[in-house]
Design a protein around this nucleic acid. Structure first.
Ligand SMILES: Nc1ncnc2c1ncn2[C@@H]1O[C@H](COP(=O)(O)OP(=O)(O)OP(=O)(O)O)[C@@H](O)[C@H]1O
Length: 785
DNA sequence: GCTCTCGCCCCAAGC
DNA sequence: GGGCGAGAGC
């Protein structure tokens, strides 16, 4: 039975309403995803709709998998294979695969990623500045996301470069020649297809009776048009989202879509939820305070539905990036946060110090995204052979692989081959009938190509086909020549991962095409350690990637200007988006939230002096606890600062007008120096509890669980846990004594036994109201009453 | 056409 | 720090 009991009234309404188009505009953690998942399961269980009549669209692949999994577990025994849970792009690919001829694509078209698009541009314009081409590549995808074609008058608003229109035009005709498509085409081409073929559109309109879109605030103009095209008279549309979580403007996301939903569709019912089931009140207060600084938003509250409370969020100031990583790692180890913990940052480049630190400290972790498996050179090379196998017009992959390893077929020869026509394999055959080194190389390449093709058609295991392919082509030998043995090893491991994943596919052509589509759409399907056990590994992830996820413990690192908010051209609208990105990261936390920033950070091989993020000022006062961890900071940072000012010139802009006096004020700041004596038990925010072993002027040597540290008392803050004097003057108890404990309440001593007189280990048993506990007398936190 | 070295410049985030 | 492209020299 699908569980409707635990839903709140609004969620229940959204699940049960079968007659309206629904807009669920609700805050973070309000159970939007849970609602639509339940709705799908409910419709299927009650027989309201068949699985194939439902289409659910998510924003990321991860979200799609999770949603399918949740539905599966709600409906054991149902066959859900015909239920479509996809990202917009994967849905587009699915449509195009079914109607490739009408869309003018190859039977076995593959999808070009951003790199491939850039390669295509490079072959079209070999003499044009690479940086310029990169910009064009971005502009082209932006134009396509907006549905602006090369003849559109508004094109110059996207890219004012004079030659852009011509570049865009030639790119479009070149990609059509390959029979393949790029990411933007996955939305653009289906829109064209359905507009030009009403009969096809009708089929899908009749088929999908319920269409749900998660994270609708991040849909773009073309995705909206696609949604309109597949929404039929009798279909019910249900979109859910949160305008405060719109973080994909850079990809053309338009908040307008969700804010004007009621105008775009008929018979709309809007449901709002302002209750959060995920986080503690403390976390919500901080998050709510932050987002309330955005002007362009629908003001809504975010209040705790469960009234859960927990520790106040913490803000850590760290001397540098490495120190930030080691601090976070030591907190993770100190509090044993190995389960359901994430370290979240703005850019992938920030993951490195965490990877190194966690590896050193033997904390199991999983890196999400980053250098994606299929983006690695050797993997792309090997795949290029396969791409060419399924589509002979794939010029991008042809050029990638034809002269790798070198076989004398340079740019000139490549032009000649391309001159024979779009079918590059036929071109290569014609070329190979000539003479010379290049023709010989072409023959060798063709032999391998044909051998691979035949073995796929024969039904050989696909992994074996690839292994033979990369061996005969000389790719493998080429990688082995690399002088750095570690690189060789890593490459071989990656190739072997690739081969073994391929060998698990069904043999044959069709299955190969499917495999290739899958890996382009979802880069995360392979790679990493292979262990998908996120629950017991610390997850390293970007803010964008965490959308829709949740963790008990969240560290948000790198809260510095020029990281978040990033970039230097801070337009107000960008700033609001940056604030939303941080808001998304913060609202992933269920119980514990720790924010951190570094005062200096290594970037591009030199040290930058950072200023803490301006967003920190947006947090309500008292909503977080700033420990200001100054331990490692040399007392006089100013000399270095002045040096930096002179040598780095404009880079000092990152100080954003902070004056020396501000710094000094901060420097004299809030350290409260407490009296210490040898033997005292103190606690430090960074290192946890420790025992003072020596005092020497300003320096205190303290033994922490993680090791002995020598700290300057002017720059380190401690809390007294237990004075040594009070430890010595410890109380003893007698059987029958009435005692009080902060944890257990009042109780009575029932036994007392000296276990080891020399070490002063005396075990007492105390009976409290609800329990009986055994304690070591000298450590017991109880007192006489 | 291949390979090695020098010097440049680091703008993201995602499908 | 490092990846990458330009250009020299083979
Ligand atoms: N009615 C409810 N009772 C108890 N827990 C709930 C309820 N609704 C949702 N939750 C829990 O709240 C958490 C957040 O739910 P969910 O991920 O569906 O929210 P969301 O609105 O999609 O969040 P976000 O927009 O931040 O990604 C989940 O752990 C979910 O199980």
């Amino acid at each position: 039975m699908v569980d409707l009991e635990s839903l709140n009234p609004e969620q229940l309404e959204a699940v049960l309403d079968t007659t309206h188009n629904l807009l669920l505009l609700a805050c973070a953690g309000s159970g939007k995803t849970r609602t639509i998942t339940t709705k799908i399961a409910y419709y299927i269980e009650k027989g309201i709709l068949k699985p194939w009549e439902i289409l659910a669209v998510t924003f990321t692949n991860k979200a799609a998998y999770e949603m399918r999994e949740r539905i599966d577990s709600m409906l054991p025994g149902f066959d859900l294979s015909s239920l479509e849970v996809r990202t917009f792009h994967s849905f587009g690919a699915w449509l195009l695969r079914r109607h490739h001829a009408e869309a003018m694509l190859d039977d076995n078209f593959c999808i070009y990623d951003d790199d491939d698009s850039l390669s295509l541009l490079t072959t079209l314009f070999p003499t044009t500045d690479k940086k310029l081409l990169r910009g064009f590549s971005k502009s082209i995808s932006k134009a396509k996301d907006l549905g602006v074609d090369p003849d559109d008058a508004k094109l110059s608003e996207i890219d004012s470069e004079e030659m852009f229109r011509m570049v865009y035009k030639r790119y479009e005709s070149a990609i059509r020649c390959t029979g393949n498509c790029d990411f933007a085409d996955l939305i653009l081409l289906p829109v064209g297809l359905l507009e030009e073929h009403p009969d096809i559109a009708d089929r899908y309109r009749r088929r999908f009776k319920l269409i749900l879109v998660d994270e609708y605030q991040d849909s773009n103009r073309m995705q909206f048009r696609l949604l309109k095209l597949i929404a039929g008279e009798s279909s019910q549309i249900c979109v859910v989202g949160d305008d405060d979580q719109s973080i994909y403007a850079f990809r053309g996301a338009e908040l307008k879509n969700i804010l004007t939903f009621a105008k775009s569709f008929d018979n709309v019912r809007e449901i709002k939820i302002e209750k959060n089931y995920r986080s503690t009140g403390e976390i919500l207060r901080l998050a709510g305070g932050l987002i309330s600084h955005n002007k362009e938003r629908h003001v809504k509250d975010i209040v705790s539905a469960t009234d859960a409370h927990g520790p106040l969020p913490k803000l850590l100031e760290c001397a540098d990036g490495e120190y930030e990583a080691s601090t976070i790692s030591s907190i993770i180890r100190r509090d044993r946060l190995f389960r359901s913990t994430a370290i979240i940052y703005r850019t992938n480049a920030q993951s490195l110090p965490f990877e190194m630190q966690l590896k050193k400290d033997r904390v199991p972790y999983r890196l999400v995204g980053a250098l994606r498996f299929y983006d690695r050179e050797e993997v792309k090379d090997a795949l290029a052979l396969l791409f060419l196998l399924v589509n002979r017009r794939d010029s991008v992959n042809f050029r990638r692989i034809i002269n790798k390893p070198p076989r004398g077929i340079g740019p000139k020869a490549q032009e000649e081959i391309a001159g024979y026509g779009d079918d590059l394999v036929t071109g290569l055959e014609l070329f190979s009938s000539g003479h010379g080194k290049a023709a010989e190389g072409a023959k060798a390449f063709l032999d391998n190509y044909k051998e691979m093709l035949e073995s796929v058609e024969r039904g050989d295991n696909l992994g074996d086909v690839l292994l033979r392919g990369i061996t005969h082509s000389g790719l493998m030998a080429m990688y082995e020549k690399e002088p750095d043995k570690n690189v060789v090893k890593a490459r071989k491991e990656n190739l072997s991962t690739l081969i073994s994943s391929l060998s698990q596919c069904q043999p044959g052509y069709e299955s190969l095409v499917g495999y290739l589509e899958n890996i382009t759409l979802d880069n995360s399907t392979l790679g990493g350690t292979g262990e998908e056990d996120t629950e017991s590994q610390v997850v390293l992830i970007t803010m964008h990637n965490t959308k829709g996820l949740e963790f008990d413990n969240v560290f948000v690192a790198g809260l510095e200007d020029e990281i978040i908010p990033g970039g230097s051209d801070v337009r107000p609208s960008d700033l609001e988006e940056e604030r939303r990105i941080l808001y998304v990261a913060i609202t992933r936390a269920r119980k514990m939230l720790t924010l951190s920033y570094a005062r200096r950070r290594m970037r591009w091989g030199h040290t930058d002096y950072m200023h803490k993020s301006r967003f920190i000022a947006d947090f309500p006062s008292g909503s977080y606890e700033s420990n200001v961890s100054r331990q490692e900071r040399p007392p006089m940072d100013f000399d270095r600062l002045v040096g930096a000012r002179m040598s780095y010139g404009k880079r000092i802009s990152s100080w954003n007008g902070t004056t020396m006096n501000d710094l000094r004020k901060e420097e004299n700041g809030t350290i409260e120096r407490i009296e210490l004596a040898v033997g005292d038990i103190v606690s430090s925010e960074i290192y946890g509890k420790g025992r003072v072993v020596a005092l020497d002027g300003d320096m205190a040597t303290i033994e922490f669980l993680s090791g002995v540290k020598r700290l300057n008392r002017n720059y380190s803050e401690f809390k007294m846990v237990e004075k040594a004097s009070s430890i010595r003057k410890k109380t003893t108890f007698q059987v029958g004594d009435k005692v009080r404990s902060a944890v257990y309440g009042d109780g009575e001593i029932v036994s007392r036994e000296v276990k080891n007189a020399a070490a002063d280990i005396v075990v007492i048993r105390v009976r409290f109201k609800n329990s009986e506990v055994q304690l070591v007398e000298k450590f017991a936190k109880i007192e006489h009453i």
